[in-house]
Simulated assay, not measured.
Amino acid sequence: MNPDDPRVRRTRDRLRAALLSLAAEHELDSVTMASVARRAEVNRATAYQHYADLEALVSDAMEGAVSHVARCAELCPLDAPRDRAPEPLEALFAHVAEHAVLYRRMFSERGSARFTHRLRDRITEVLAERFSEGARPPGFDDVPTDLHAAHLGGALVGVIAHAARGGRAPADTALAAWRLLRG
């Protein structure tokens, strides 16, 4: 199957959109490939031609969210003042608030462990790359850069999971997260 074929892209787009729609309505463990195929208006066999299983579809569908979070982490100025959250961090938590139901389901006990690991790993990777290029907050020279990046990546994922539960304005969460992450 040629992933550049417009028909393949359209079918995968429909399957991803159907999954995200169903995930916003139901617990993820109650969603099946058959229900996704019905919602996408494709044959179940067609769905399996594109994705080996539901977990592969979930992973692909959530890649957009993972990419968005990683992009925000990449754009965040790590030397910004403590009293004002950087704009990319505010954008990140606004995005999480906008898609809170989906994030809650993905982070839930019955959600996708692959999503959580992928998100943490991507953030860690982005931060480690930035740190190796010299864009590292001051005061951590005695900590290996890979461990520092892993610490911040895990912490940010934890705050994102907590923020998905709601209760605080995205700007307030961004500022609190910034103060924690900045050290």
Rank of each mutant, 00 (worst) to 15 (best):
P170L: 00
R130F: 02
L119Y: 06
S30W: 04
R182A: 12
E109K: 10
L102N: 05
R44T: 13
S108H: 01
D79L: 08
R7S: 14
V143Y: 02
R179L: 04
R120L: 04
A150N: 01
R44N: 11
R130Y: 00
R9A: 15
A85I: 02
D146M: 00
A23Q: 14
L152E: 10
C76Y: 03
D121T: 09
V96F: 10
E98T: 11
W178K: 04
L175H: 12
V42A: 06
R168A: 11
E87F: 07
V66W: 02
M33L: 12
R114S: 12
E129R: 02
C72Y: 06
A150Y: 02
V42H: 05
L152T: 11
Q49N: 15
G64P: 12
P138V: 02
R9S: 11
D83C: 02
S67E: 09
D5R: 10
V69F: 11
R114Y: 04
G166Y: 03
L22W: 07
A17K: 07
D13T: 10
G183N: 12
M62W: 13
A155K: 04
V66H: 01
L15F: 04
D83N: 08
E125K: 05
Y51H: 11
A100P: 10
A37H: 05
E41Q: 14
P137R: 05
F131R: 00
L175T: 11
A161C: 06
